[in-house]
Structures are given as structure tokens and as C-alpha cells.
Simulated scan of single mutants.
Amino acid sequence: MKYKLIKVLSICLILSFLTGCWDQKLLKDTMFLSTVAYEKKKDKVISTIAIRSYTSKEGTLVNKTYHVAGDSPRDDRTKINQQVSGIVMSAKKRIVLFENQLAKEGVLELSDVLYRTSESPLTAKYVIVEGKPSTIVELQQVGEELIGEYLDGVVHTAEVNSLVPVETLQSLCTVLFDEGKGLALPYVKLNTENKTVDVIGTALFNEDKFSGITLNPEESKVLLLLGNQKGKYMIMSHKITIHDQQYVVSYDVSGAKAKMHLTPDAMYGAKVTIPLHVKVSINEFTKNEMSSPALTKKVQEEIEKILQKKAEKVVGKLQKANCDFLEIGREAAAYHPSIWKRLKWRQDYKNISINPKVQVEIIHRGIIN
């Protein structure tokens, strides 16, 4: 009897220390935000928000779009909560759109509320929009997809096909606070004719500010090759000239490996050489046959020339934008501390010498060859 009494008292004592559900948020009182677009008008931040809800008859998901103007994203959220019949949560937010002009003022300040809120989804994607991003959210849905799911699918497809770098809310923070790294985000615009969104390239950043310099899709692919960030697929196509005749050659990038050699330099502060070895599989060649080793070598040389020219152009744009996407600064800090300490990286990066060296190898010429 005494043992049972002690056991009961012990259980009661333990239960008194349990907090219970003191911080519950019921789903029936919650409205989930799927997409938000930020733009600026005078001194106000304009938020266009897509909130998912269910129709009363069929129980299907629909979007409701809200527009608010406030002093900050948190102020906008407070005003949204005054307009809806529930508590707005961002746990299912997938895409954050920024107007290109607003992004030039910096994205970190607008992101502060996301990093301080525990419900913020760390896998959300940032996208820069040419023009007003509110016009994209106002589409509400494209085909059978709601705008949040549609935009998430567009960005994911672009990442898989090596059109844009993979960047999330979580990884973006580590890039912005590291002096030896540079940020690049997907760049899109509204296709007014088809009422869809086109991925038109990559936006380059100087710290957290959009530099105004962009890469087109072909240049974006070369950027990812130089940074060893190729996605699952990468298909490229060029016009080449052989014996004064033009042909179209298309190929899959089967594999690529870029290395980095960094040395001190009296004139530029540092000299960087980036050997890039690209293995390709030909999947289209309008000359039809490609059985001759001499012809194969000529096609290989032509592709090499084109990629070399594009790589040099990409590096030039990176330095003009002061965007160290290739993480040369991290390489210097880790393996060449004397160079890192001598240079003020933010100021000196755009003046160092960066020389890509592209080498192409055709490993497959198609099933008929």
C-alpha cells in the first residue's frame, strides 16, 4: 500500500511540471499563405499575398489575393490579419517574389521577419521579377495549378534543367553573411500573351543588393558549370561553321568538372585560373552523319570555342556585378590566407584576374554513329 501511494504521488508531482498544449494553433482558425510579392511605392512596402482557402460547395482549393501597404513586411502581415477571418501563417509559403527595382535596395532587410519567425519555411525560394510581381500573383492560377504551386514547379524545373542555381531561404542567409561568396537568384517575367511566367535567366547580386546585371539562360548554364553546380540535366545548342557551312549541334552535358588555381599577382592582387572539363553527348547534328574522327574533332573544337567565349563573358559579368558566385574568396581564405589578408575582398574582387580554360570531350555521338 505504501509503495502504491509513493507511486501515485510521484506521478502527480511529474504531471505538475508538464506544460501541456500552451501554444496550439488550430487548423480551422488558420489561413495558409502560399506566395508573397514585394514591391515599393514611394516609402511604402506593397505586399501582394495569395492565401489558400476551400470553396464551401466542392471543398476544392482556391486562391484569394490581398494587397496591403505598410512600413515593413511585418506591418503588412498585421494589416492582412485585420482583413481575413483567421490567422495567416507562412508555414506553407513556397515562393517569395521581389520587384527588380526593390531588390536593388537589398533583400536582407525585407527577409528579417522570415528569419525571426519559427513558422517560416526554410525551403522557400526567392525569385527576382522583371517588372511588377503583383501581376504574377494576381493570375491566381495557371491551368489547374494555384499560383504558389505553379511558381514552385517553374523554379524547380529550371533548377533541374540547370537554368538557375538552387537557393533557398536557409542557404541564402549563409551566402549573404560570408564575404567570400556571392548570391545569384532566378530571374523571371510575366508572359502577358500566355498568362504564364518565363524564366529569363539569373540575377547577380552585390552582397544583398541586385546589381542590375543578369545572365541569359545559356550564360546561366555556363555559370553553373564553372561553379560545379550543374543540375540533373543540361542541354545546350549552338550554330557552328564547318567548311563555310552552318550546322546546328545540340548536346547533353553528361559531366563537368571545374577546378581552381589561385596565385598571388603583383598587378591584379590575385590571379585565378579555372580549368573546366566538359563531357558531352551529341543528340542532334544537322549534317546527319558524324562517323569521321576528323569531323568529330572539328565539332568538338567549335563547341569548345563557343563555351570558352561564353565563360569569359560570364566571368566579366560576375566581376562587373561584384558577385563572387564561384566562391573564389572562400578558396583564398581557406588555402591562401596571405592573399586573403592582403586584399579587401569586397573592393578588390572585381579587379583580380580570372581566366577560365574550357576543354570539351565528345563521349557519345548518337546511336547511328
Rank of each mutant, 00 (worst) to 15 (best):
K232E: 13
Y187N: 06
F98L: 01
I128K: 01
Q24N: 11
V314M: 10
V272Q: 08
C173L: 14
P186D: 02
E289V: 13
V222H: 03
R330I: 13
K92F: 10
I213S: 07
G86M: 11
Q245K: 12
K2I: 14
L204M: 04
V96E: 04
G329V: 08
W22A: 06
N191K: 07
I242S: 02
L122W: 01
D112S: 15
T296R: 15
K2H: 05
V129F: 01
R77L: 15
L204T: 07
S171N: 12
V188G: 07
T296W: 00
T117A: 13
W22R: 04
I328L: 04
G366F: 08
V36G: 10
T263F: 04
D252R: 12
L13Q: 08
K125S: 10
D71Q: 12
I368L: 15
S90F: 01
V299P: 08
M89R: 00
A158P: 07
I200H: 08
G20Q: 06
M236S: 14
R74A: 15
L151R: 13
S10M: 14
I242P: 01
L5Q: 10
A333Y: 13
I147S: 09
V248Q: 09
Y126D: 11
I354M: 07
Y115Q: 01
K189M: 11
V360P: 09
G255R: 12
N216Y: 05
K230C: 09
P165N: 03
H156Y: 10
F32G: 05
L262A: 01
K132T: 14
L61G: 12
R342E: 14
K320R: 15
P356F: 04
I46T: 12
E289S: 15
V197T: 08
A333W: 10
V199L: 13
F285K: 05
V197R: 11
K298Q: 09
K239L: 11
Q359L: 13
K257Y: 12
K313Q: 02
W340F: 02
G182F: 03
Q246E: 14
I242W: 07
L176V: 12
F177L: 10
W340L: 02
I352P: 05
A158R: 03
S85V: 11
L102N: 06
I49E: 14
K79S: 02
D23T: 11
G20M: 09
K313C: 04
Q245T: 09
L169N: 03
Q245P: 03
F32N: 06
Y3Q: 14
G227D: 11
F205K: 01
I240F: 06
L146M: 11
K298D: 02
L151S: 02
K64W: 07
L276R: 10
I14D: 02
L224V: 10
V280Q: 10
L326A: 08
L343Q: 10
G59V: 12
S10Y: 05
A256P: 06
L102F: 01
T123G: 04
E109G: 06
Y335T: 05
I240E: 02
Q245V: 07
G106V: 03
K230S: 07
I6P: 01
